[in-house]
Design a binder for these strands. Structure first.
Length: 833
DNA sequence: CAGTGAGCGAGCTTCCGCTTGACTT
């Protein structure tokens, strides 16, 4: 095959997956090569039932995706002009499939088509790849088809069962259902956790003008024991009993993969996983970093050398340590390098602040990964006393050689991180130490930590579930479906007993700590718990944590040609489909969507907690249709779950809304809404600050809050216009902005907000007329169908439109599923410890 | 946004993995 000849004489079309990659490669290959991108997958299963012919060996039908029609059209044109087409999609299962789909969709003939792969984007690697083309690996393609078909069958057969049995619009799938299950399981672990307290003893000594902090290894279950221990040390003298020095070292972490980048950006920069990916994408498109969706920790030889040079130049040769990292994760497909700067000598990149911060993190991590270990000298001091045989231990750490610590310190998820050991003053054996104080403090064990977005990604990756390209979307899907909420929760105060031995006397005191406070953590909703339990009960295999690992093994066998893909799917589907049919026959009324909380202490009526159309609520009594008596209802508040709300807390919910008096002849009513406690007065709402107890607010305080709100509102309005009541220039949280009814617009920075004219405002809002009700966002948006057609519209517009429609749907009197009244029998009692 | 907890009922919802887009608040 005269490859070299074709390379120089003919026209070549190279197709890769990413346009940014195409641009780089084009530069390496010269003018005989046109490099284009497929923008990922070009064909997929259509939406309907016709996608998979289950009776005929699960034969899939593929169609060119709507957003790829233009791409295929363009590529077809270029194919005609080319003599050889090089399929250079990623070197993994999905990449192989993309090549195959391209071949099919572009009608490529075998003779003029070559499949090439490279894992790093360097001139050498690419020219090397061109020298070593191969054919499409159909076994690998079949493994991908099996993956695709399985996911479709699982997702599109399980989800409709949920629509019928639980709620319309829900979803289930191989990845998301496990993600939800993890969050649900963790919440239950936290709920069932019994904190145990122990007394932990710490001592502070003084030597050479420095404070030495030491700990007692033993802990005491009872206060009396801690007290006895302290009593035994009254009048004791303390001295250094033993000194031990141990050399140690610290080794840098591997450069980032998608998952570790998301974790570190979450911990160090508080980015959501989606935010991290958006910022990384921008850095990638600007050519500043290598590809950001990767599961590989390996760096190319080029990168290893470049890092070495950069480190030598900046810190000297002693700081260099070339390391080749290997993946521990078997599931990794490693089509790319680890995430690294494209140029290690560039220490700053990115246009916007957060981009810069992310780049710095990537740069530091990649550079550090190629640096020497840090050398540490650890000193362990054993401190004895003249009264007892008990010893305290103090540890000190001195860094004797900084190594990689010069640039980067990895953080950890562990909340209970001990503060790093500090340095100790020079000490010698038998040296006397002056006791400052000894403290015995009650410490509670902590429940397992709730997941953050990033720690959930980490867990999924460890279990081999999901891929770098889907971590962020999965996390957002389970939130969009209402299974999981990302929230802050206030903690509770807890009193701790503290005993302090100082100046030979022991004092007992109480200190308070805040416990259970959470920031941006994932909480399951009642919907998630009900759906999860339903799925786990009826589809135990698919919701099993090892399901993905098991099917991945089979996909591997298919890729190795040891197994036929349709046989594998058939074996799975026969039993799976039976489960589906069985589950479809389940009576809706037997599904556990609620719980009996007990009887009302005064009326003896039944109190129930249930999941309704508008969310979880509690209800007193069951009403009486004939007498026209309706039960009383109240929604659960943030943080409350059907599963564990107590009768007392449930009854609390009925105490609001509550009238607290009148002001200007109109009643003031205190309630709790989505955004917390409020006072409603004259159909206006005033938030009640956290420092006030909504149950304690009286008429005078209500008036005070309303008047305070009026003053702050007056400061809010910068300008309004007599021509239209909708147009207002307001002072908001982020400075002045233009409001047209409910729609807000940014103001240009070069003009004084108060001086803007009506014309200016209309221009900013993009209107050529005074706003109508619709412009002001007060009238219904256009019909569903037209909204769908306008898919070219902005994501933001679409999003709000969808939101509004969703809101409307719930409000409107038309709903989907036939509601089966859940009878008393349906509410199972869940026994709680 | 501040409550609601249905009624005749059409047609719809949904998966996982590849990519980027063109938007803001």
């Amino acid at each position: 095959m005269p490859i070299i000849a074709t390379r120089f004489m003919s026209k070549n079309l190279v197709i890769v997956e990413s346009p940014a990659k195409a641009k780089t490669i084009e530069g390496y290959l010269g003018k005989d090569f046109t490099v284009r991108s497929s923008y990922g997958h070009v064909r997929d299963l259509p939406k309907g039932d016709s996608a998979i012919d289950i009776k005929n060996g699960f034969k899939p039908t593929y169609v060119v995706s709507e957003d790829k029609k233009e791409v295929i059209k363009e590529l077809k044109k270029l194919v005609k002009e080319a003599d050889v087409v090089w399929l250079a999609t990623d070197d993994d299962r999905e990449g192989e499939a993309i090549s195959w789909h391209l071949q099919e969709a572009l009608d490529l003939n075998d003779k003029a088509t070559r499949r090439i792969v490279f894992r790093e984007i360097t001139k050498n690697a690419i020219q090397n790849a061109i020298q070593n083309p191969r054919g499409i690996d159909i076994d690998l393609v079949n493994a991908q088809q099996a993956r695709r078909v399985l996911d479709r069958l699982v997702g599109f057969e399980m989800s409709p069962v949920l629509w019928k049995k639980i709620k319309a619009g829900l979803s289930a799938g191989r990845v998301q259902s496990v993600a939800v299950r993890l969050v649900v399981d963790r919440e239950r672990e936290v709920d069932q956790f019994n904190a145990a307290a122990q007394f932990k003893v710490n001592a502070e000594f003084k030597a050479g003008g420095k404070v030495i902090k030491a700990e007692l290894e033993e802990r005491f279950d009872k206060e009396a024991d801690a007290m006895a221990f302290l009593k035994g040390l009254i009048q004791a003298n303390f001295s250094v009993q033993n000194l031990e020095k141990k050399p140690g070292k610290k080794t840098p972490a591997a450069p980032f993969t998608t998952s570790t980048l998301q974790q570190e950006a979450s911990r160090k920069l508080s980015f959501s996983v989606a935010q991290t990916m958006t910022l990384a994408q921008r850095l990638y498109e600007a050519g500043k970093i290598s590809y950001m969706r990767t599961d590989s920790v390996a760096l190319s030889e080029f990168a290893l050398n470049a890092a070495k040079d950069a480190i030598t130049a900046a810190y000297g040769e002693a700081f260099v340590h070339t390391r080749r990292y290997k993946n521990k994760n078997e599931n990794a497909q490693e089509a790319h390098e680890a995430i690294r700067p494209t140029d290690f000598t560039v220490t700053q990149a990115g246009t916007e602040r957060n981009e810069q911060r992310l780049y710095e993190l990537i740069w530091k991590r990649a550079i550090a990964s190629q640096m020497a270990d840090a050398q540490i000298e650890r000193t362990i001091v054993t401190i004895g006393n003249s009264n007892t045989k008990d010893t305290f231990t103090a540890t000190g750490e001195i860094i004797t050689f900084e190594g990689f610590l010069k640039v980067y310190i990895e953080s950890s998820d562990d909340e209970e991180e001990e503060d790093a050991a500090g340095t100790l003053p020079p000490l010698s054996i038998n040296q006397a130490l002056e006791l400052q104080q000894i403290q015995a403090l009650e410490r509670y064990t902590r429940p397992p930590a709730r997941y953050t977005e990033a720690s959930l990604v980490k867990k999924l990756e460890e279990m081999g579930i999901g891929r770098p390209s889907t971590y962020a979307p999965t996390i957002s899907t389970i939130q969009k479906r209402g299974y999981v909420v990302k929230e802050n929760r206030d903690g509770k105060e807890r009193k701790l007993t503290q005993l302090i031995l100082k100046d030979n006397t022991i004092k007992e005191g109480i200190v308070t700590e805040i416990t259970g406070q959470e920031k941006m953590k994932l909480f399951p909703t009642d919907l998630a718990m009900i759906t999860n339990d339903f799925l786990v009960e009826h589809f135990p295999n698919v919701t099993d944590f090892s399901f993905t690992a098991r099917v991945e093994k089979e996909f591997d066998e298919i890729a190795e040609g040891k197994k036929k893909w349709d046989k594998m799917i058939d074996a799975f589907y026969t039993s799976f489909h039976k489960q589906v049919e069985k589950t479809e026959a389940v009576e809706r009324s037997t599904i556990n969507t609620g719980r009996e909380l007990g009887r009302h202490p005064e009326t003896g009526e039944l109190v129930l907690a249930r999941l309704g159309r508008f969310g979880p609520y509690v209800q007193i009594g069951e009403g009486d249709e004939e007498k026209g008596i309706k039960p009383q209802y109240a929604s659960l508040r943030k943080g409350q779950l059907i599963e564990n709300i107590s009768l007392a807390d449930a009854l609390e919910l009925f105490k609001l809304p509550r009238e607290i008096g009148t002001f200007e002849g109109k009643p003031m009513v205190v309630g709790i809404g989505r955004f917390g406690p409020y006072i409603r007065h004259d159909s206006k709402f005033v938030s009640i600050p956290k420092t006030d107890d909504p149950m304690a607010i009286d008429e005078a305080r209500g008036v005070e809050l309303i008047e305070a709100k009026r003053i702050s509102d007056a400061a809010k309005l910068i300008k309004d216009f007599k021509e239209s009541e909708y147009i207002k220039i307001l002072n908001g949280r982020w400075g002045p902005f233009l409001a047209i009814g409910k729609n807000n617009f940014k103001l240009p920075k070069d003009k004084e907000p108060a001086l803007l004219t009506l014309e200016d405002c209309l221009k900013i809002a993009g209107l050529d007329h005074l706003p109508t009700e619709e412009d002001a966002g007060l009238k219904k948006p256009t019909a569903k169908k037209s909204a769908k057609k306008a898919s070219t519209k902005t994501a933001a517009v679409k999003k709000t439109a969808v939101k509004k429609q969703a809101a409307k749907k719930t409000a409107a009197k038309k709903t989907t599923s036939k509601k089966v009244t859940v009878k008393k029998a349906a509410i199972k009692k869940t026994t709680k410890k």
